Deep mutational scan, measured.
Amino acid sequence: MIVFVRFNSSHGFPVEVDSDTSIFQLKEVVAKRQGVPADQLRVIFAGKELRNDWTVQNCDLDQQSIVHIVQRPWRKGQEMNATGGDDPRNAAGGCEREPQSLTRVDLSSSVLPGDSVGLAVILHTDSRKDSPPAGSPAGRSIYNSFYVYCKGPCQRVQPGKLRVQCSTCRQATLTLTQGPSCWDDVLIPNRMSGECQSPHCPGTSAEFFFKCGAHPTSDKETSVALHLIATNSRNITCITCTDVRSPVLVFQCNSRHVICLDCFHLYCVTRLNDRQFVHDPQLGYSLPCVAGCPNSLIKELHHFRILGEEQYNRYQQYGAEECVLQMGGVLCPRPGCGAGLLPEPDQRKVTCEGGNGLGCGFAFCRECKEAYHEGECSAVFEASGTTTQAYRVDERAAEQARWEAASKETIKKTTKPCPRCHVPVEKNGGCMHMKCPQPQCRLEWCWNCGCEWNRVCMGDHWFDV
């Protein structure tokens, strides 16, 4: 396979590697080409510095992935760790964990309700045991953590790749202090920090972006993250068709209702045909949960890209028209025109101005929308079919299609509260000796007794199943 190397943020060049090629071997190839010592090179990928003893497969490097290699003399205490030698983080029983690669970060837990604080980093599902597709590297999971809308060759929703760059020099040479644990960490600028490894760059702020994971991409090709779309790892039924499908869209209502993408497309087109989208002054033209839940309008309007190009163009047109109407304007009634106009409040005669090729020149009556006339309008008909009709959803289907309910059931079956801080902690095999993952707590306690870890627990039921 081919990976592209950008040395000291210059133009990239291809390097041929195998899945079992080590990072140090990659350094040696680059060092020979650039005429520099291999031990002064640092390989940066997806916000993480890659260790010498890791392989291309370990690092989730795919065909035509772009890695950054910078030349920086080692500072005291760094060289041993980078070589894969006596790194205290690798000691058996050590409590410190390697910062998780962005290629394996899962933010789907952050669609849980606000009262489930902490689960994004504490609760991990076991539903990723799908067998890898044919042709994928051994052991590589097909679980997708992110979804994007690819405006490039795909023109559809695709699995996405999370990447990070330095907000100062805009190069992907920043190593994160810690990985993101929720969508806010990724979507809110300057929320996460790190250290830029580019020479002479003092940058410390992280800037995240997404790429389409279905095809090789260049540095400049980015895609918009659709953070309401998630892999259906909890096997929730769709609120409309009641099938279990994946991926799904999880509405931001209190129940976190789930809808499959085909039904979401149908829901949007139906509402669009009836012009029953909601115009929100802050958000724009949007839709609420299909069950009509309060405070559930979709905030990231790129989710409506699921409509496809033709329907999305209609959505944008109707949204612009609705904006004009909300501002007190009118639409030209001549067939084939429909231009938005903003006449004076007491102006009865409205002319669709033909300047700049935008208007048709038609003069019409503001009251009856017919060709302009003197005197009273002959008839004014009330528009028919403008009443909002509820999208029919079966109550039982709505009850079963809740992301929140599956989460709470998982928590109930696989977790116990920490005796000190009461945060839910998952036990997935292993011994009875637990350690609270909350940095402010870190209590060592017994899963069996529910009390602080002691010699009695150690001698009596340390390794009970």
Score class of each variant (00 low, 15 high):
residue 91 A to E: 12
residue 445 W to S: 04
residue 255 S to V: 07
residue 162 L to N: 01
residue 336 G to K: 07
residue 367 E to N: 12
residue 121 V to N: 15
residue 182 C to V: 07
residue 142 I to E: 13
residue 201 C to G: 02
residue 158 Q to N: 09
residue 451 C to K: 15
residue 130 D to P: 11
residue 47 G to A: 02
residue 176 L to Y: 02
residue 36 V to A: 04
residue 148 V to I: 08
residue 332 C to T: 03
residue 232 N to K: 00
residue 146 F to T: 03
residue 404 E to L: 10
residue 256 R to M: 08
residue 13 F to D: 03
residue 326 Q to T: 09
residue 276 Q to Y: 05
residue 212 C to E: 01
residue 27 K to T: 03
residue 353 E to A: 08
residue 184 D to P: 06
residue 362 F to K: 05
residue 151 K to W: 15
residue 346 D to N: 11
residue 322 E to G: 03
residue 284 G to T: 03
residue 410 T to H: 10
residue 347 Q to D: 12
residue 136 S to G: 14
residue 29 V to T: 11
residue 16 E to T: 07
residue 66 I to H: 08
residue 218 S to V: 10
residue 408 K to W: 08
residue 270 T to I: 09
residue 248 V to Y: 00
residue 374 E to I: 06
residue 72 R to P: 05
residue 290 V to S: 05
residue 333 P to M: 03
residue 161 K to C: 11
residue 353 E to P: 05
residue 318 Y to Q: 04
residue 266 L to D: 15
residue 446 C to Y: 01
residue 148 V to R: 01
residue 15 V to E: 00
residue 75 R to P: 13
residue 384 S to I: 12
residue 272 L to R: 02
residue 152 G to Q: 14
residue 128 R to Q: 14
residue 281 P to N: 09
residue 217 T to E: 15
residue 354 G to Q: 08
residue 6 R to E: 04
residue 275 R to L: 02
residue 176 L to V: 09
residue 405 A to M: 13
residue 232 N to C: 00
residue 392 R to D: 07
residue 25 Q to G: 07
residue 29 V to R: 09
residue 90 N to I: 12
residue 394 D to I: 05
residue 264 F to W: 06
residue 126 D to R: 07
residue 361 G to L: 07
residue 199 P to R: 07
residue 317 Q to C: 12
residue 114 G to C: 12
residue 458 M to Y: 15
residue 212 C to R: 00
residue 406 A to N: 14
residue 304 F to H: 01
residue 75 R to E: 14
residue 225 A to F: 03
residue 42 R to P: 01
residue 282 Q to V: 10
residue 450 G to V: 02
residue 343 P to F: 06
residue 355 G to E: 14
residue 426 E to P: 11
residue 320 A to K: 11
residue 306 I to R: 00
residue 95 C to V: 14
residue 360 C to D: 03
residue 346 D to K: 09
residue 411 I to A: 09
residue 159 P to W: 05
residue 401 A to M: 02
residue 37 P to Q: 10
residue 443 L to I: 07
residue 350 V to Q: 04
residue 163 R to S: 15
residue 314 R to E: 02
residue 284 G to C: 02
residue 402 R to T: 10
residue 308 G to Q: 05
residue 357 G to V: 14
residue 409 E to M: 09
residue 395 E to A: 11
residue 54 W to V: 07
residue 173 T to S: 08
residue 260 C to H: 01
residue 172 A to I: 05
residue 263 C to H: 00
residue 114 G to A: 13
residue 188 I to Y: 08
residue 301 L to Q: 08
residue 455 R to I: 15
residue 377 C to N: 02
residue 125 T to V: 06
residue 413 K to P: 13
residue 43 V to H: 01
residue 191 R to H: 07
residue 301 L to V: 09
residue 437 P to Y: 09
residue 337 C to D: 03
residue 455 R to D: 15
residue 137 P to I: 13
residue 113 P to L: 08
residue 417 P to Y: 11
residue 450 G to S: 05
residue 72 R to D: 15
residue 121 V to C: 14
residue 236 I to G: 02
residue 375 G to Y: 06
residue 325 L to K: 05
residue 239 I to R: 00
residue 86 D to N: 12
residue 21 T to Q: 09
residue 85 G to K: 11
residue 152 G to L: 06
residue 130 D to E: 11
residue 56 V to N: 00
residue 180 P to C: 00
residue 362 F to L: 08
residue 441 C to H: 00
residue 145 S to K: 06
residue 443 L to Y: 08
residue 399 E to Q: 11
residue 390 A to C: 12
residue 352 C to S: 02
residue 87 D to W: 13
residue 278 V to W: 07
residue 402 R to L: 05
residue 48 K to N: 04
residue 210 F to C: 02
residue 251 F to P: 00
residue 325 L to S: 04
residue 422 H to I: 07
residue 91 A to D: 11
residue 63 Q to A: 12
residue 75 R to I: 13
residue 195 E to V: 12
residue 350 V to R: 03
residue 257 H to P: 00
residue 399 E to L: 12
residue 169 C to Q: 00
residue 272 L to E: 01
residue 99 P to Q: 14
residue 81 N to C: 15
residue 328 G to I: 02
residue 178 Q to I: 08
residue 367 E to P: 04
residue 20 D to N: 10
residue 437 P to Q: 09
residue 299 K to M: 06
residue 96 E to C: 09
residue 4 F to I: 07
residue 462 W to E: 01
residue 317 Q to V: 07
residue 459 G to H: 15
residue 405 A to R: 13
residue 300 E to F: 05
residue 446 C to N: 00
residue 407 S to Q: 09
residue 121 V to E: 15
residue 21 T to I: 04
residue 227 H to Y: 13
residue 11 H to L: 04
residue 254 N to S: 11
residue 340 G to A: 11
residue 105 V to I: 10
residue 373 H to L: 02
residue 47 G to L: 05
residue 7 F to E: 03
residue 232 N to D: 00
residue 125 T to M: 07
residue 99 P to R: 14
residue 238 C to G: 01
residue 88 P to M: 10
residue 125 T to P: 14
residue 85 G to E: 12
residue 50 L to Q: 03
residue 36 V to Q: 03
residue 337 C to T: 03
residue 79 E to Y: 09
residue 26 L to R: 00
residue 36 V to R: 03
residue 359 G to A: 10
residue 60 D to W: 03
residue 98 E to D: 11
residue 412 K to G: 10
residue 163 R to N: 13
residue 403 W to L: 06
residue 293 C to E: 02
residue 218 S to H: 12
residue 49 E to L: 03
residue 395 E to H: 12
residue 198 S to E: 11
residue 357 G to T: 15
residue 383 A to T: 12
residue 274 D to W: 03
residue 156 R to C: 14
residue 348 R to H: 07
residue 53 D to R: 04
residue 456 V to L: 15
residue 66 I to Q: 04
residue 89 R to A: 14
residue 139 G to T: 13
residue 207 E to N: 07
residue 82 A to C: 09
residue 54 W to H: 07
residue 441 C to Y: 01
residue 129 K to P: 12
residue 125 T to C: 09
residue 41 L to Y: 02
residue 102 L to W: 08
residue 316 Q to C: 11
residue 160 G to K: 00
residue 452 E to I: 15
residue 428 N to E: 15
residue 43 V to G: 01
residue 453 W to C: 01
residue 92 A to P: 12
residue 58 N to C: 07
residue 120 A to D: 15
residue 172 A to S: 12
residue 410 T to F: 08
residue 169 C to F: 00
